[in-house]
Design a protein around this nucleic acid. Structure first.
Lengths: 336, 336
DNA sequence: CTGTTAGCGCCTTCAA
DNA sequence: TTGAAGGCGCTAACAG
């Protein structure tokens, strides 16, 4: 910058002012500065700028995994909004581990990000607290943090599952099994609650399995159930991973969908219409959620305010009726 | 830091040394410093550290999209390796646009990243040059940059496609169609070259379509071909997007796989075994590629060297034989 | 082993 | 409208 100033025959402050454009600078000086910048191909040092100023123009993004298409879609929206705002994004994965998440959040704070967007790890185990972040705004999404006043953006997990299971019941199924990973994941638990509500309302018995950690365990659980006396006639898988394991098990067991058992899942994915049969699912707006969360964060950053009690925004889901539930018609999308 | 030093009754340098751990500090002083850090819950300012020192302990990652599971997997590996090394990752998407890519690369340079990992946008259109980056190491992967001495990590696009198409031909197909997005994408073109080689070696006629930009265009192209005189009996789709569009078109046209036409794709994905029928594909090691590229980058960063001519590492692909090609046996993976 | 000095590049403050 | 001074938090280099 000193070089630019010297070449332009002005002080460094004039260069700074030309760059920021906030304070009036004479036309002539501005011209000379611009030329000098060109000639020297001067690049402002954002590190120094962030260090000196109050803003790093960087936000942090913490998600469980990037290889999961759902989280990747969320992340895509975050990076897109940030780019539009001229912000950089520091990204990291927590691997669903509260300790990693905590350490990564601290690291981002040490890097003085202007704000964070986080998909928190396991509910009631996450160590993220409002106090940890001081005056740095934070928006959590997809999953909430218990008892902390963060802004949060969620989807209708319970209502979506409820509606989906109702649909299965309307197909005449009286034994619907719920397949999930773990109740310690907020979304899975919320979906389970929707499942339970629908089942209870219909006067049916609930049958939930929370051990879909691997193909093997899922297969074992399904094998038991399907050979037992209260054989389920429909299965609701609470996320795409569970869906995959369930489908694998069903193929392995030679069970036909929807003839032998009907199937519905939570979370749509690109190939869902080409599976055999096409899958009926609850579709959640992954990118929309990331976008809303990030916009909310920028609101907070721009206003410099930390809310006493965070907003809670709940986005609607859609029911996508394909074939696995037993529907005969063409694919239909039902808005709630 | 001054506060910590005062509380510990030492100079700031001692605090700095305790933190970095590079220079010996007396046991007693170190203890007092640690206690003071605890008490004040002091957090080093990484921004200042990066600004002052030579290293920002940050790398940049530029990929076309994050919503594409293949790229997301690549990104996952990059962030994982970086985390292991104690580095942060600034991520951004180029949207396959050379201008955006260029601007984002400059932005990262202004942020003084220690190195960059990039999946370059369109071949021969990308504006990334060695000169742009000065002494900052760069590793490109998945796709090369023409005429620039970057380190690059690729997969066997041509050989994989060649082998896959050979397999189709071995099934007795004499008219194999190639479906792709655009020859301006390096990978698609490389796969096309493998296709062409296999077709020519078998003395067959090539039939390639490069307009799979949308379902509609793909449908139109396929409709023409399948109703024409030289109806293809097998289709090779050169990436997952093309696969999706082709499957959609085939469903729409009521064409049965593999009875009416056989099918094979490039790039495996999680649900490929549950499509109808299970898809035969070339599997590329997405995470492995990201891992290798990032390790290579850290090598460069640690050695502080910019290669005159970049390394070119080519990773092997696998052929995953499922049902869509016409194979009757169970899924088999063939290493090349 | 430890402290002092100095300065990274920028921008806020103040004075001209 | 412009420039000079000063300092953000940290660490390399040099004393001690």
């Amino acid at each position: 910058m000193t070089d630019v100033a010297r070449l332009a025959g002005v002080g460094t402050m004039t260069v700074s002012r030309v760059l920021s454009g906030t304070v009036p600078v004479s036309e002539a000086a501005a011209q000379r500065v611009m030329t000098a910048i060109q000639q020297l191909s001067y690049k402002p040092n954002e590190l120094a700028r962030a260090f000196r100023g109050q803003r790093s123009r960087t936000i942090g993004l913490i998600i469980p995994y990037l290889y999961d298409p759902f989280f990747a879609n969320c992340a895509h929206a975050v990076t897109t909004v940030a780019k539009d705002k001229g912000y950089s994004v520091i990204i990291t994965t927590s691997d669903e581990d509260p300790e990693t998440e905590f350490a990564e959040a601290e690291q981002m704070l040490r890097r003085h990000v202007d704000g964070l967007v986080v998909i928190p790890s396991k509910f009631r185990q996450t160590r993220l607290t409002r106090a940890l972040f001081g005056r740095t705004p934070v928006v959590v999404f997809d999953r909430p943090v218990a008892d902390e006043p963060f802004d949060m953006v969620l989807v209708q997990n319970t209502a979506g599952a409820h509606k989906m299971v109702q649909h299965l019941i309307e197909h005449g199924h009286s034994r619907v099994a719920f397949m999930g990973l773990s109740r310690s994941l907020f979304t899975i638990n919320a979906r389970f609650l929707g499942y339970r509500k629908a089942v209870q309302e219909a006067g049916l018995k609930e049958d939930a399995f929370f051990g879909c950690q691997s193909i093997e365990e899922t297969l074992k659980a399904l094998e038991e159930r399907l050979s037992g006396p209260n054989r389920p006639t429909a299965i609701f898988a609470s996320n795409t991973l569970a869906t995959r394991y369930v489908l694998s098990a069903l193929v392995h067991l030679g069970v036909k969908i929807p003839a032998d058992v009907a199937f519905a899942g939570f979370d749509d994915f690109e190939m869902a219409e080409f599976t055999s049969p096409a899958l009926t699912v609850v579709r959640q707006p992954a990118q929309e959620m990331g976008r809303v969360a990030t916009n909310l964060l920028f609101d907070r950053i721009e206003r410099g305010e930390i809310p006493e009690t965070g907003n809670r925004i709940v986005l609607p889901v859609e029911i996508v009726l394909r074939r696995s539930c037993g529907c005969k018609h063409r694919t239909a999308v039902v808005n709630r």
